[in-house]
């Protein structure tokens, strides 16, 4: 900007940027926690029918339950206290990391959620890896000749993947790979093979967007002035790719992985239910079904915080990849 004050080099305060990222995401995490808690709480307050009755039924079976058993459950869970006290207590407990006990299994929620979180993280990590390998690979191939046959194939792929909901994709994979070909177990949790179908379902679903962003980024970067200059400087093509194209394409791609986190978590809920994978999504759908409020709150909270965590990692990666100062508005 300042030609006349020639030759002053401004060093970007990286540490300041780092602090800003962490503060921003920390604040977001806090907001998410409060929002989810209040939403959950409202849900419970307006539950039609008697939650306690339903829980008691869950415990003892519908035939054996009576008003007395329901009242016992109500007292045990503190559902007879005033609404605002329940909310205040829950928020207070939350910040002490005391999430209560499951209304159904009576085990501490922290324990249950810890177990399910591990399952979800495994599934999410493998799916993300599949999405990046398939998506980035297809994107790079499509970018080699924009408008060429590979490019058109990739475009069709992206649209079809976007149009098919994960549960349908999962069903199709079950039909093809499990029922027809008998290659893989369809449901269950355990053994390396059982993760393949759910992870493939999620990974293929995500790969569409990854492929499109990668393709656009690579095409744009390869046409950029700095890549052309790197070539005319005399740098061999291989090194132009490694040193300039990959990094700059990643600068565009990585923030979108943050946006993907939301889609990933949505997919997790569905795919876990479909394949009975022991994860947070599966647990949450069960909790909704059984009105197990503490587990519902905890799983919703952890899922939402997972998104914030992924976005924090994305922000840090972008900070590392791209030295330019920026506004934190790209990712979710």
């Amino acid at each position: 900007m300042a030609d006349h004050r020639a030759d002053v080099v401004v060093v970007t305060p990286r540490r300041k940027e780092l602090a800003r990222v962490l503060a921003h995401r920390g604040g977001q995490g806090l907001g998410v926690a409060v929002l989810v808690s209040v939403l959950c709480f409202l849900v419970v307050r307006t539950l039609p029918g008697d939650a306690a009755y339903r829980i008691a039924a869950g415990r003892y079976g519908y035939d054996l339950v009576d008003q007395e058993a329901a009242d016992a459950v109500r007292a045990e869970l503190g559902l007879d206290r005033p609404a605002w006290r329940q909310l205040a207590d829950w928020l207070l407990d939350l910040f002490q990391l005391d999430l209560g006990r499951s209304l159904v299994t009576s085990r501490p929620v922290v324990e249950e959620v810890g177990y399910y979180l591990l399952g979800t993280l495994q599934l999410a990590a493998v799916s993300l890896a599949i999405a990046i390998v398939i998506g980035a690979g297809a994107g790079v191939l499509a970018a080699r000749r924009p408008g060429g046959p590979m490019d058109r194939l990739a475009t069709a792929w992206v649209a079809s993947v976007r149009a098919v909901p994960p549960f349908l994709l999962g069903l199709l994979l079950v039909v093809v790979l499990s029922a027809q070909l008998g290659l893989l177990p369809a449901v269950g949790h355990g053994g390396a093979a059982s993760i393949v179908l759910p992870a493939l379902t999620l990974g293929i679903g995500l790969s569409g967007l990854v492929a499109r962003i990668t393709r656009d980024a690579v095409v744009e970067v390869r046409a950029s002035a700095y890549v052309q200059f790197a070539q005319t400087k005399g740098l061999p093509e291989r090194w132009v790719l490694v040193r300039h194209v990959v990094r700059n394409a990643a600068v565009v791609l990585v923030p979108y992985l943050g946006v993907q986190a939301v889609i990933l978590i949505e997919g997790v809920v569905v795919v876990e239910s479909l394949f009975s994978w022991q994860g947070l999504g599966h647990a949450m759908v069960h909790a909704v079904f059984w009105r197990d409020v503490p587990v519902l709150q905890a799983t919703a909270l952890v899922l939402a915080l997972l998104i914030v965590a992924v976005n924090t990692l994305v922000d840090l990666a972008v900070l590392w990849l791209d030295p330019r100062p920026r506004r934190l508005e790209v990712a979710a």
């Binding site: 950029s224 700095y226 300039h244 990094r247 791209d322």
Partner: peptide
């Protein structure tokens, strides 16, 4: 436009 010809990440 040399400013555009330099890789912003290097």
């Amino acid at each position: 436009e040399p400013a555009l010809a330099l890789d912003p990440t290097m």
